[in-house]
Design a protein around this nucleic acid. Structure first.
Lengths: 234, 234
DNA sequence: TCAAAAGTGTTCTTCCTACACCCATGG
DNA sequence: CCATGGGTGTAGGAAGAACACTTTTGA
């Protein structure tokens, strides 16, 4: 590459990750209490910079791996944020990632080493830069996608019960759902396989543990499944 | 800004625009036959670079305006493309825009001055770099969004008939639709206002000209309206 | 045996789909 | 008066919403 484009602006490119988890009761975000400048001591999303000679998508996978210790997790691009002064240190354009992980597969020691914590979505602290805006957009996206696509499973352990799944949806939309209709709707997708096991943790009646039919999941991912009744999204 | 981030990589940031139009029969793309290097003589999307001191969104609006002569047109971010060698001249990350315009509001002289042409989507030429990939993704997005949101109107003139709208949807999904059901579905949204006028161009019975209820359009934009029967997207 | 959670069935209503007839226009 | 395209109505079926009872379990 000898000749370059005759344009003066070259910019630092960051990737910021919105990482959702679900503990069985509440939606959570993996946030970091910064021990580096700028904004030391404040809360922010986890992120990193795009490297020389690194594909953007590879960088996304690398950073998510560095931050969670997990590979092959669900993520998609949320949006690219590029306000001039969004980062006071220098101009930085941030490709923002939207990611869902099984909170129990995540190593809590690795998180501590990075000063990262799972924070309840509902009482999250104020974040630096434009990270609040990113999180708000991510919540919107989560609500949007989960209503139409079987995306919620990404937040659950491999084996899960229908009541767990329902609690997840109730947390996402912050509304109660009818057990009977929810159960029927989910089962009618044919995406769940009865493992034959029961949830031994339960105090009362043990619920059936299901796992996802991976093949059908891939195939039907883009079908509109209408998981939610009457969702009209802000 | 005295101290910068201790990271070596600063990158050129491009914006590439996928601009859809509809001539009443076919979906079209605004493409440019390049008269500059690299890849002179080949077809590409229209684009530009992000400037120093310019917000990303402002750059998007600027470039769309430079390329179409139109302001306040519908656009959204499609995706950011960042493969290392996607541009042979130098590493360039491209924020790809997805835009819908009223083809008749577009100035054909301005287009010619830029060597730009409206090309039928179905027999579009091969494009440079990763632009084919961008277009394919944009078609997918168009089909996705138009099935759920009242986005199609952006491609039509201010006043339009229901048969025109139906032809648009048939072009987007490349499938015939039932006139009666389509009409009922569209009218039931309450988004159309009867202008009292009729389409004088028609040879036979003159169709009613409608216009969009802008207020309802804004308010209901994010409601899922289920415009399409049985759409399961790729 | 009781409380708490899980599983399942039915009815009503709504919405979607398939389909046919009539009207307006210009040649 | 006829061919072409536009407007509208209806009956049947599928899916969603509202709702209640039974089962399992451990205390």
């Amino acid at each position: 590459m000898l000749i370059k484009y005759d344009h003066p602006t070259r910019i630092l490119l960051a990737l910021d990750c919105i990482i959702f988890g679900f503990d069985g009761e509440e939606l959570k975000l993996l946030l970091v209490k910064r021990n580096i400048e700028p904004e030391i001591g404040k809360w922010s999303l986890m992120g990193g910079f795009l490297n020389e000679g690194e594909d953007l998508e590879v960088a996304a996978e690398r950073i998510l791996y560095e931050r969670t210790g997990l590979k092959e997790i669900y993520f998609e691009e949320l949006q690219t944020f590029g306000k001039v002064n969004r980062d006071p240190v220098e101009r930085t354009v941030s490709v923002c990632l939207f990611s869902l992980i099984n909170i129990h597969a995540h190593n809590p020691d690795a998180a501590k080493a990075q000063n990262a914590y799972w924070i309840n979505l509902k009482n999250r602290p104020n974040l630096i830069f434009d990270h609040n805006e990113m999180v708000n957009l991510a919540i919107e996206r989560l609500r949007y996608k989960a209503a139409l696509h079987p995306i919620g499973f990404e937040l659950l352990p491999e084996k899960f019960t229908i009541p767990q799944l329902q609690k997840l949806y109730e947390a996402i939309y912050d509304m109660p759902l009818d057990r009977r209709n929810f159960s029927r709707k989910i089962l009618s997708t044919g995406l769940l396989i009865d493992t034959g096991e029961k949830n031994e943790n339960s105090i009362t009646k043990k619920a059936i543990l299901y796992r996802l039919d991976q093949e059908k999941y891939q195939k039907h991912f883009n079908a509109f499944l209408n998981f939610m009744p009457d969702v009209s999204l802000s």
